[in-house]
Nucleic acid binder design. Structure first.
Lengths: 349, 349
DNA sequence: TTGTACGCGTTATCAA
DNA sequence: TTGATAACGCGTACAA
């Protein structure tokens, strides 16, 4: 079990100095062709590769991006990672993943762990608990130490950093507009409590689409669910909530759900209650998941273009990392909005 | 934009030596309480944290695990990552992710990149292209440099390393046995070409279950699909293949599919052809995905316990990393088999 | 009780 | 053309 070969070992073996070896390997003009040949041949034989850690220490640059997400078993987030990884690799960076598991403390710990020299910058989406507690000191501290952050999807307007977001408002509005155009008169929305920024924005889009369609929004058609509750594991609770919605509003003919699970559950409950989709009730979800495509009927959705979000975030971050610090007068932050698109499937007419 | 504070800066500021600061922070008995207090207070004020990279270089240990997977937008793999991350974090390690995208060259490049000092060991699942080409030099080279590898799911028997696998054979056999017990007489299997080891093993399980059930396997009930082809994006091709299977074998009353997509597509096609599930045809899939749970009807599956695989792999790797090298005479490799379990839903009686 | 020196692996600068 | 030295940030054995 041989260790990785180092410059020092090559130097000793060939009876030259370390710096000669280093220069020879980088094809420096200072070194004679003779020595270069000798060194390079030896290095090749022993498969020499510079040690990344040593380079990181010397250059004070790790060429590694940290990505902190609330959950990885989730199509949206795994697609974002794929996008980040794609761009990162292309531009010579590695990606190190931290999961907050929607917990504030895990988010903080993970970030501190990585911020101590392991990475050059963060790409992250804020955990629900953090959003709820509104404690953002760790973001500000990280940035004040000169480590850039790019936030995506779940972002905070008050924090000064690059952001990549979906146009939640417009995406929701277009979706609901579609329902209005299809002659739906009683359109319900299944959404989250307002502290989840995306839930709030999507609700606003819903409201505006109704207004523009000449429909007066009704409070009882707005179902706001506590999103910290783990519905994935307690589907029955979710089903009851939605069943209640349908039962107390028998004229519902359209549903806009702010995520995939809500949408699918709505379809399931509706069917159970004897409604036909899309004949009696049309349903649209807001998601990038796989469930929609394979559901029966296949769900019409607002696509978020998750991979593109990841790519954009990675490019923003790396651009910042590689920017020449001299030329910039004032630090500039951008917010890139990724346009959504409506993917029409079978749950709408 | 202040940089991260280092021992050196604290030393200069307090007019003591670097090592005094270092010792004071680690609460060494050598240092006077007075100095300790002073140093610790200052460190706290400036939020001093040791630089991970420097520690890695010094200790020749990064406390980071590299995980290489073929694809991240996939429930099985993302669940494995979650398992790895969970254990890794608990034991003080970070996780750095590399995607091979099912490509041999990307797998090699990614591994080389990480093997040069960035990580202490690998957890990986082999790409399809690598399996097909049967070129495993990069695994052997990595290990010969003293970097341990734990393979999961897609493994190679000939390679000497720790492995975590699912009992594909038994899982498949149990599933098919279930169909036999339910009085299915014409059970088809939708599987992959044999170079994907899991496909092969699952096919063998299928065959043995039939034998034991007193059913003679028929070649025309075995559909082997080219798995390098991207069915997810060309679903119509997959549908045609399966439709063909049903049409030329009208008596099919049971289907065992080696993955989620095949199973769902089989259900879809069967329904299209007028069959009822599970009345006319019962279907079982082999997967850990979400689609199964939310499909209509919900799909009975062989669960692989992906997260547990990840946890097991991480524990194996870290155990090896932290093992005292003196006490070991001969390097021992283990293969841990994770038992599958049959999750019965609505697609079987 | 404090400080000096060294080494982890690399590169850049300067001296020989 | 080659080599010695310093530096990146840290911890520790040893000297003062």
């Amino acid at each position: 079990m041989k260790r990785k070969v180092t410059l020092k070992q090559i130097a000793r073996e060939l009876d030259v100095s370390i710096s000669t070896v280093s220069k020879a390997l980088r094809n420096s003009a200072e070194i004679s062709d003779d020595t270069k040949q000798k060194v390079q041949a030896f290095a090749k034989l022993y498969n020499y590769r510079p040690n990344n850690i040593a380079l990181s220490l010397k250059n004070r640059k790790t060429n590694t991006i940290g990505i902190i997400i609330p959950e990885i078993v989730h199509h949206f987030f795994s697609k974002v990672i794929r996008g980040v990884e794609l761009v990162a690799n292309k531009r010579g960076y590695n990606v190190i993943v931290g999961l907050s598991n929607e917990s504030f403390s895990k988010e903080v710990i993970n970030m501190e762990m990585l911020a101590n020299g392991s990475i050059d910058g963060f790409i992250l989406s804020i955990s629900k608990e953090t959003l709820q507690q509104q404690d953002y000191h760790h973001f500000n501290e990280t940035m004040s130490q000169g480590m850039p952050i790019v936030m995506f999807d779940r972002v905070i307007p008050e924090i000064n950093c690059d952001k990549v977001i979906v146009d939640d408002f417009k995406g929701a509005k277009n979706a609901v507009k579609k329902l209005v155009d299809q002659q739906c008169k009683n359109i319900a929305i299944i959404t989250t409590k307002d502290y989840v920024s995306v839930g709030k924005l999507r609700t606003q889009g819903y409201l505006e689409a109704l207004e523009e369609g000449g429909i007066t929004p009704k409070a009882k058609l707005i179902l706001k669910l506590e999103d910290t509750f783990n519905f994935e594991e307690h589907l029955d609770v979710l089903e009851k909530e939605i069943e209640q919605l349908f039962k107390s509003n028998k004229k519902i003919d359209g549903v806009f759900a702010v995520n995939e699970l809500y949408a699918l559950t709505a379809m399931k409950v509706a069917r159970k209650l004897g409604f036909k989709i899309p004949e009696d009730i049309q349903v649209i979800g807001f998601t990038d998941g796989v469930l929609s495509k394979h559901a029966t009927p296949a769900l019409t959705t607002v696509s978020q273009h998750a991979q593109q979000m990841g790519e954009t975030a990675a490019n923003l971050l790396i651009d910042k990392l590689e920017k020449d610090f001299n030329e910039e007068e004032e630090e500039q932050f951008q917010t890139v909005v990724i346009e959504t698109s409506l993917v029409e499937r079978e749950s709408t007419k």
